[in-house]
Amino acid sequence: MARMHTRRRGSSGSDRPAADEPPEWSDVDEDAIEDRVVELAEQGHDPSQIGLKLRDEGVQGTPIPDVKLATGKKVTEILEENDAEPDLPEDFRNLLEQAVRLREHVQENGQDHQNKRALQNTESKIRRLADYYRGDELDEDFKYSYENAVELLE
Rank of each mutant, 00 (worst) to 15 (best):
P17H: 11
P17S: 09
P17G: 14
A19G: 13
D20T: 15
E21R: 11
P22M: 07
P23V: 05
E24T: 12
E24N: 14
S26R: 08
D27Y: 07
V28K: 03
D29H: 10
E30Y: 03
E30P: 03
E30H: 05
D31G: 09
A32G: 12
A32V: 14
A32C: 13
E34H: 10
D35Y: 05
D35S: 14
R36S: 10
R36A: 11
R36G: 06
V37I: 15
L40V: 10
G44A: 11
H45G: 01
H45R: 07
H45Y: 12
D46P: 08
P47M: 10
P47G: 01
P47T: 09
Q49D: 14
I50R: 01
I50N: 04
L52R: 11
L52C: 02
K53Y: 15
L54C: 07
L54R: 03
L54M: 07
R55H: 14
D56N: 12
E57W: 04
G58D: 01
G58C: 03
V59I: 01
Q60M: 12
Q60H: 15
Q60L: 13
Q60E: 15
G61E: 05
P63T: 12
P63L: 02
P65I: 12
D66H: 14
V67K: 00
K68H: 12
A70N: 09
A70C: 08
T71H: 01
G72A: 04
G72I: 03
K73W: 09
K74A: 11
T76A: 03
E77S: 05
I78A: 00
I78R: 00
I78W: 00
E81W: 02
E81C: 02
D83H: 03
D83C: 03
A84C: 10
E85K: 04
E85H: 06
P86G: 04
D87V: 09
D87G: 01
D87T: 09
L88S: 03
D91L: 08
N94C: 00
L95M: 09
L95W: 05
L95I: 01
E97D: 08
Q98V: 02
A99N: 00
L102F: 05
L102K: 02
R103D: 09
R103F: 03
R103H: 10
R103M: 07
R103T: 07
H105T: 04
Q107G: 07
E108D: 14
N109Y: 10
G110I: 08
Q111E: 13
D112C: 12
D112I: 06
H113N: 15
Q114L: 11
N115Y: 13
N115D: 12
A118W: 03
Q120G: 11
Q120F: 13
Q120H: 09
T122S: 04
S124D: 12
K125L: 15
I126H: 04
R127A: 06
A130Q: 04
D131S: 08
Y132I: 06
Y132N: 05
R134S: 11
R134L: 01
E137A: 12
L138K: 02
L138E: 00
D139C: 02
E140F: 08
E140R: 13
D141K: 11
D141C: 08
F142R: 00
F142Y: 14
